[in-house]
């Protein structure tokens, strides 16, 4: 089990679905094709009302995510956070990250 004090905060309003997190994770941990340490899910596009669309992405860490224990032990960021093109992921202590949830909507905090 990964250290449960730490987690990932994802400001998914800005996730563009670029899948850099998926690839960074897969090559860092040599995860087989078809399995994922983090996977990006797509919602939409669909039209809620005229000119009002739902279209967003949601990265979801899986059981294969160890929050890049080896990297974080050296003071580095998890590779998904480091390479996220939209810069919408943050690694940190859950209690610190949780405080940020009230800043603005469309964020999700994963305790891992």
């Amino acid at each position: 089990m990964a250290n449960s004090e730490y987690g990932l905060l994802i400001d998914y309003h800005w996730c563009t679905g670029c899948k850099s997190c998926e690839m960074a994770c897969s090559v860092e941990h040599d995860i087989p094709i078809g399995q994922f340490g983090i996977r990006v899910d797509q919602f939409g596009p669909w039209e809620n009302a005229p000119d009002d669309w739902t279209y967003f992405f949601m990265p979801v860490p899986t059981d294969q995510c160890d929050l890049c224990a080896e990297r974080t032990a050296k003071g580095k960021k998890p590779t998904c956070v480091h390479h996220c093109q939209a810069a919408c992921m943050e690694y940190g202590k859950i209690e610190d990250l949780a405080k940020k949830l009230t800043d603005h909507p469309k964020q999700v905090l994963y305790a891992l």
Binding site: S20, M23, V27
Partner: peptide, 25 residues
Amino acid sequence: VRVEGDEESPYNHGRLCARCLDIKE
């Protein structure tokens, strides 16, 4: 062994796309 984005870069700020991240393959 691997490639990482250079976090000191004023151009990409450490970020990389999936194609570059998979350069070893």
